[in-house]
Amino acid sequence: MTLPPAVPGPSALPADPRRTEAVDPGHADLDRLGVQALVQVLADDQRAAVEAVRAAAPALARAVEAALPRLADGGRLVYLGAGTSGRLGILDATELTPTFSWPPERALGLIAGGEGAIRQAVEGAEDDPALGEADLRAVGVGPGDVVIAVAASGTTPYVLGAARAARAAGALTVGLANNPGTPLLAACECPVLLDTGPEVISGSTRLKAGTAQKIALNTLSSALMVRLGKVYGNLMVDVRASNSKLAARALHLTRHATGAGEAEARAALDAAGGHVKTALVMLRLDLGAPEAEARLAAAGGHARTALGEGLEEG
Rank of each mutant, 00 (worst) to 15 (best):
P4D: 09
V7R: 15
G9N: 09
P10E: 15
D16A: 09
P17M: 00
A22P: 07
V23E: 07
P25T: 06
G26R: 15
D31V: 13
G34C: 11
V41R: 13
Q46S: 13
A52Y: 14
A59R: 02
L60Q: 01
E65Y: 04
R70S: 05
R70T: 03
V78K: 08
Y79Q: 09
L80V: 05
G81R: 12
A82W: 04
E95S: 02
T97A: 15
T99Q: 10
F100I: 08
S101M: 02
P103C: 11
L108I: 15
G109V: 12
G109E: 11
A112G: 08
G113L: 04
A121L: 14
A125F: 01
E126D: 13
D128K: 03
L131Y: 04
A138I: 06
A138F: 09
G140D: 05
D145E: 02
V146K: 02
V147W: 09
V147D: 04
A152R: 13
A152K: 09
A152M: 07
S153H: 06
G154I: 02
G154P: 07
G154V: 06
T156D: 03
P157C: 04
V159F: 03
L160A: 10
L160Q: 05
A162S: 10
A162E: 08
A166L: 15
R167V: 00
G170H: 12
A171F: 05
T173A: 00
L176N: 02
L176A: 01
L185D: 06
L185M: 09
A186G: 14
P191M: 01
P191Y: 01
L193C: 03
L194S: 00
D195N: 12
T196L: 05
G197A: 05
E199F: 12
V200D: 02
V200C: 03
S204L: 08
L207W: 00
K214E: 03
A216L: 05
L217S: 03
L217R: 08
L220N: 07
N234T: 13
N234Y: 06
D238N: 15
R240G: 02
S244M: 11
A248I: 03
R255A: 10
G259T: 10
G261C: 13
A265H: 10
A267V: 08
L269R: 07
D270W: 07
D270L: 15
G273Q: 07
V276R: 13
V276H: 10
L287M: 13
E291V: 07
E293V: 14
R295N: 12
G300I: 07
R304H: 14
A306T: 10
L307N: 06
G308T: 05
E313W: 11
G314Y: 06
G314M: 04
